[in-house]
Design a binder for these strands. Structure first.
Lengths: 243, 243
DNA sequence: TTATAATTACTTGTATACAAGTATACTTGG
DNA sequence: CCAAGTATACTTGTATACAAGTAATTATAA
């Protein structure tokens, strides 16, 4: 699995991962970043050769990516779907759907412990900013939302999250790396928004929650732009996956 | 793949399916029906021997079932999670979540064509009742809801549906088979409810939609009972998967 | 009798081999 | 030059082999 190309996905996060998971994470990043273009056809054999692994883990990865709507498994080859602006909005539809549902559950229970956890994560995020660690910041950001979702103990909401998570993670990673370089002061706003989020959960105030979700939505627009910029930047070192 | 045990899943639906899909469908049915008990540990080798296939399709099936929350892949063996009453309710939470979202989209567009499609499916359902075909009825029932969801062209809502669908399908299959035998007059109510559903979409009337969803929710309670009955019935010919 | 060490049996993850099927390209006949 | 059929080079799906690691059991020593 010694790959000549650079890894977009933080290898640090893959310490316990199987080869199949590694490949899935890396391919996902390449697809979302635009290195692998929408419409490209991926072949199991070709990928196996590229990653210098056998077809088994490749098959596993392709199946994962198909369930995430990143590719479409066809009779001959896997066609890359990737993310258009429409699809990115759709992902955030889902996040909004989930988090609204979760909030309605949360207002009926004791949120003290979750608030404590979230506060901890928020502090970690601040440290990550301080040390210019985009990947760590992304990790904590994803963890923040996962913590909220996990707190209501709803296996099928969790199932939805588990399916959407990898794509969101990749999206956030790319977006944050960009911002750390070019839009550093965005982070003040992001932190403020997360504080608002915690406050909404703590006080169980729907108005604050809506305000927070709205701000987050505004953030999405920014993310879309970022992604586009990110794609522009990355496509310099572009690699054609198929000829 | 010549299996000595009877197949719970309609083999007719598996004509184009790979061995892995077949195994996944059958295992899902066995888990949901309670033949394979919550907490049981499934081994790849054992399953491969039981189904008389190699480990490759078994692995594929287990991965699928894990993503559906039917099993939990652990270091040694796959632990069966199955469905408790809580989880069945959670599945319907998700369906409600999705269908509410879809309805809000539908009221903003032209629903004429969907309504036409749904009417056709409804007629098919009536025929299925007439000929006592529980499996066909279930198929059309699932198709009915899928048609509604598909109509808004939202890839990530579709993704959620695709993940929840197999479990719902199995659930509906078991429930309907039971009802065809013991609660035949339920179907008048179900058909009425589906007509109400179509009306809500046709007139874009939120009140009718809510009424319809509520009736459907009442139906869920019935399904839960059915499932329990079904489990009682099936556990006569029970098979221990692990000792 | 109990605790510890070693062996055994079973687990998963990956590689590889093979069969069946499909699209493309080439050849052959008109 | 064009059409049709055959051959070839791909594709996926399944089986099998092998390596690395884990748990449980047995044997040995205190």
């Amino acid at each position: 699995m010694a790959d000549s190309k650079e890894w977009l996905y933080p290898t640090k996060w893959l310490s316990k991962a199987s080869t199949g998971e590694r490949v899935a994470c890396e391919l996902r990043m390449r697809i979302i970043s635009g290195i692998i273009k929408r419409g490209a056809v991926l072949s199991e054999n070709k990928l196996a050769a590229d990653f210098e692994v056998s077809r088994s883990p490749i098959r596993e990865a392709l199946k994962t990516l198909a369930s995430e709507n990143m590719i479409r498994l066809e009779r001959m080859g896997a066609v890359v779907i990737g993310l258009t602006e429409k699809e990115i909005e759709e992902i955030y539809d889902v996040r909004l759907l989930i988090e609204t549902f979760v909030f309605e559950r949360l207002v009926k229970t004791d949120t003290q412990e979750v608030v404590r956890e979230l506060s901890k994560i928020l502090e970690m995020m601040k440290i990550a900013i301080k040390y210019n660690d985009a990947d760590e910041f992304s990790y904590q950001d994803v963890l923040f939302h996962e913590t909220i979702i996990r707190s209501i103990d709803h296996s099928y909401i969790m199932m939805i999250w588990n399916n959407a998570k990898p794509v969101m993670e990749a999206l956030i990673l790319l977006s944050m790396r960009m911002r750390f370089k070019e839009k550093y002061d965005d982070f003040t706003r992001i932190i403020n928004n997360h504080e608002l989020y915690i406050e909404a959960i703590s006080t169980k105030d729907r108005n604050i929650m809506i305000q927070s979700l709205h701000q987050n939505f505004d953030d999405v627009q920014g993310k879309v732009e970022d992604l586009w910029m990110s794609q522009q930047m990355l496509s310099k070192g572009e690699v054609r996956e198929n000829d």
